[in-house]
Amino acid sequence: MPRLRLPDLGFPDLGIGVGLRTPHYREILADWPPVGWFEIISDNYLETQGRPLEILDQVAARYPVVMHGVSLSIGSTDPLDVAYVRRLVALRDRVGARWVSDHLCWTGVQGRNSHDLLPLPLTPESLAHVAARVDQVQQLLGTPLILENPSTYVEFRGSSITEPDFLAQLCHRTGCGLLLDVNNVYVSSRNHGFDPMSYLDALPLDRVAQFHVAGHTDLDTHCIDTHIGPVVRPVWELLRAAWSRGARASILLEWDAEIPALEVVLREAALAREYAVVAP
């Protein structure tokens, strides 16, 4: 399908960043270490008026901050939680977050929340449903929403669209951007048996606003996206491949299990320079 050129996302290339995590709060506030930018889990700062927000205010005064959420539930058939989106907007405006992202997934239905990033059947029905909700969110945000390809562990028999095609059509219909998690591409490719390079070829890489790299747990029969440990070589190679295909975006390392010292996290993130031409 020929693609019309969409307006540029207009988001800056921030270089290499890491996730803002509580075990590192003390060191960050004491030393203000050189870090390109921080990604926050939006949900940890939405329903608090206390210490997390006080810390974030200080961090945001010194570093670029990007918001990454896990509860938008863009694919749910429950009504969109408009109050949640308004809280996202308020937080973004408070801390000057450069953009707001979440996942192509749903987290619950009928008022119940699984707190997991659940997979969607990739069908024309789902595409129309998600596109309408992305439009709604973008109206509230006033900027493009950035959506991440999730790690998935099941596929629906009724799916008739591949994930990269689904994301491409979603971008085309709504003007949204992508957070390309190359670890998720790798994990899902192992779980479902597709070729990760073909996945990259099918994505509109000019819509990528941000990359994620992360570690995972390889159980041989399948992989789990645990965000544990260093990034494995095949995942770094996917970053290189996406870059060589023209994707240009900020790079973020996620490390959420057995989180080591900040110094270790930063050293791992810096390895991205070997696989991509990173903004200074």
Binding site: G19, I41, N44, D116, E125, P150, R157, I224, I228, E254
Partner: peptide
Amino acid sequence: ERASATPTPPVRKPRRRTASPPASTLPLG
């Protein structure tokens, strides 16, 4: 704290697969 990571289940022996019936036509909801 929330994160998008997934907890790791204990490893167990894979179950035997069964023959597939026709694909579901359940709507998204």
